[in-house]
């Protein structure tokens, strides 16, 4: 098992380098550098511009800048934001819990709704429910996130006034961030009003972010269940005289979960990518919104560091999924 993990970790290194290189290159391909963006249309004397560029080291050849950056990263130094002058890492760590909270709830939403929906659709294959679930999930999967988000805001926030339009918490409340997770912090502070407010703020972003994973989970669960339900061991389970619930909920589901868990794990990447759009729509103060702002400001270190940290998170989750896959599937566990 340890060897397996070590092999997997070593495979992460090229991915890591690739991600670093690509973000470094791509953001520099975008016209305008941090200084030009900051001075905007006011203009700046050319000699002053050169001076500032020199200060930030932007006048050196790209390869030198890249090696410098990589050198820093390898020493655990992601640099300093050009805008706020704070360390990129500490900015990320401050904002990341908000994204994580949103992503975790979105995944929870996708799993809690998608798994049962997929199971029932498979068991009642060809029924109205089955066609309904598959139709809705195809729609959900195909829908642009930003459009879906705006639609929900229009309907529930503007039209019905049920949910807030943006942010994490009403201005009425202030909760000292301890874990950074609003739901936990408010509960720890004993502020139940704030807790409800935080929950209210989470509902729409959670649905918007969870829609694509929900569709994927529902469809994957259905197809995995359909495949498993035709297996010989399901017939054996029935021949034992087991009740339908046990046959489906234990014998079939346990096997069907193997591919579903993999898919859920792979959705984490989609989720963090989707968080960028969702956070922007709902002004959610997480890393997604921060990244978009960093792009707009051409804040090179912030963007590079942020993408790198998100990539690391995704790779870690994928590694965990692989390990979990072995736990779920005894055939894999023993062949390792």
């Amino acid at each position: 098992m340890l060897r397996f993990i070590l092999t997997r970790v070593s495979l992460v290194i090229p991915t890591f380098l690739g991600v670093t290189f690509l973000t470094f290159l791509l953001i520099r391909l975008v016209p305008g550098d941090p200084i030009e963006v900051r001075v905007g249309e006011r203009g700046i004397p050319p000699e002053r511009l050169l001076e500032l560029r020199h200060e930030l080291g932007l006048d050196r050849p790209l390869w030198q800048q890249f090696l410098d950056y990589i050198g820093g990263v390898l020493q655990g130094d992601l640099g300093v934001s050009l805008v706020t002058r704070n360390s990129v890492f500490s900015e990320f760590v401050t904002l990341f819990p908000a994204t994580l909270e949103l992503a975790a709830l979105a995944m929870l939403f996708a799993t809690v709704v998608g798994l049962p929906a997929g199971i029932i659709a498979a068991v009642r294959r060809g029924s109205v429910f089955d066609h309904g679930v598959m139709g809705i999930s195809l729609t959900g999967y195909s829908m642009p996130i930003f459009w879906w988000g705006l639609l929900l805001i229009l309907f529930f926030s503007v039209g019905l006034g049920w949910t807030p339009v943006s942010g994490r918490l009403d201005l009425l409340y202030y909760v000292e961030p301890v874990t950074g997770f609003m739901l936990i912090d408010t509960l720890m502070a004993g502020e139940y009003g704030a807790f409800w407010s935080a929950l209210h703020h989470l509902i729409l972003p959670m649905i918007v972010l969870g829609t694509v994973p929900l569709a994927v989970v529902a469809r994957m669960t259905r197809s995995a269940m359909l495949e498993v339900l035709g297996e010989d061991y399901i017939r054996t389970a029935k021949a034992k005289g087991l009740a339908g619930k046990r046959v489906i909920g234990l014998h079939a589901l346990r096997n069907a979960l193997i591919p579903v868990v993999t898919v859920i794990g792979l959705q984490v990447g989609t989720l963090l990518g989707g968080a960028i759009l969702t956070e922007t729509i709902f002004s959610w103060p997480g890393v997604g919104k921060w990244l978009i702002e960093s792009i707009n400001r051409r804040d090179y270190p912030a963007l590079q560091g942020g993408v790198l940290l998100i990539a690391t998170t995704v790779m870690t989750v994928n590694l965990l999924v692989d390990v979990l896959y072995g736990v779920l599937n005894p055939r894999i566990r023993h062949s390792r």
Binding site: T236, G241, L242, H251, N255, P330
Partner: peptide, 18 residues
């Protein structure tokens, strides 16, 4: 499964792998 029980053709796939 109690009074009437059955043994199937394919033992490798008739037992639940999990």
């Amino acid at each position: 499964g109690k009074d009437v029980a059955m043994v199937f053709q394919e033992p490798m796939s008739s037992l639940n792998p999990c």
